[in-house]
Nucleic acid binder design. Structure first.
Length: 280
DNA sequence: TCTCAGGCACTAT
DNA sequence: ATAGTGCCTGAG
């Protein structure tokens, strides 16, 4: 099925390549990925997001996935008072925070621990290829992200064979809890930010950073401010005169300075910092 | 060959 | 509370 979604203040490339999602592949002017169980191919011409998706795909869900319902100019007003964020916005205008599948997001960021983005992508690709559902869209083959039940049942040897390393134990353990409903991901919706984060952190392989990523990228909790090494270094350099701060302190500072949309500030800053480094 | 990644758990103070 | 240490693996 094909349809298009009109949207202004949107940039597809920045949105899909700022590091919040790991499975979108670019070919020409299109990006191909999976949303839930639907294969999706998208392109953007500056006015509307053109979508081709598996039959039966939910149009509203896809618009929601890309964050098209958020009022970006209003968010810019809230966080753009800071000169650094202002610069980052100018450069990456249209970058939107996605609203991803919760389980996929949680599992993906458990895998992100102590490794680099190319390898995270590789781990997720091999995991999906092995345990996900094969989908075909316009001749392109792609695999859905495996449900928790599939990963829960997979053997440790099999998972390690997919290159997950020591994370295999973490993801299997969490998959078992989610699949058995011992841990109800959707129930986090009813908790406030602090409670939800704390609850997520009871899972093996989930610390503060991963919990914040999950809340920001799949629960629309825009006050979440994931502090990774890049953000930590960046904040130290830009706001603490080069002095070292703990991740907790950095996050506290950010929420104070950027307020309820600290997470949006984080994404722009993160993207900005990474590309600054690439140049030098 | 070697270093180093988008953290976390575990242990010792 | 806070500080130190090891971890699978592969890309550069």
């Amino acid at each position: 099925m094909k349809f298009s979604l009109p949207v202004s203040d949107f940039n597809l490339e920045h949105t899909l390549e700022c590091g919040q999602a790991f499975r979108w592949e670019k070919s020409g002017s299109f990006y191909t990925g999976v949303i839930g169980d639907a294969a999706v191919k998208v392109s953007f011409d500056g006015r509307k997001l053109a979508v081709e998706a598996s039959p039966g795909a939910d149009k509203k869900r896809i618009a929601d996935y890309f964050g098209l319902n958020e009022d970006l100019p209003r968010i810019y007003k809230k966080i753009g008072g800071d000169p650094n964020i202002k610069k980052a916005i100018k450069k990456y205008r249209g970058l939107r925070i996605l609203n991803q599948d919760r389980w996929e997001c949680l599992a993906s960021f458990i895998l992100s621990s102590y490794t680099n983005i190319p390898r995270i992508k590789k781990m997720i690709a091999s995991l999906s290829r092995r345990l996900g559902k094969r989908l075909v869209l316009g001749g392109t083959e792609i695999y859905s992200f495996p449900p928790a039940g599939k990963i829960a049942k997979a053997g440790m040897k099999e998972l390690k064979g997919l290159g997950l390393g020591f994370r295999a134990g973490y993801i299997k353990d969490t998959a078992q809890k989610v699949a058995s409903k011992k841990f109800d991901l959707d129930a986090l919706e009813d908790l406030n930010y602090g409670e939800a984060k704390e609850r997520l952190m009871t899972l093996k392989g989930v610390g503060g950073k991963v919990a914040d990523c999950v809340l920001l990228f799949s629960f629309k909790r825009y006050e979440a401010f994931p502090v990774d090494v890049w953000i930590k270094r960046g904040l130290e350099e830009l706001y603490f005169n080069g002095k070292a701060v703990t991740p907790e302190k950095a996050a506290e500072f950010a929420r104070e300075r950027f307020g309820g949309y600290a997470g949006y500030a984080q994404e722009y800053l993160y993207h900005y910092l990474r590309h600054e480094k690439e140049r030098s």
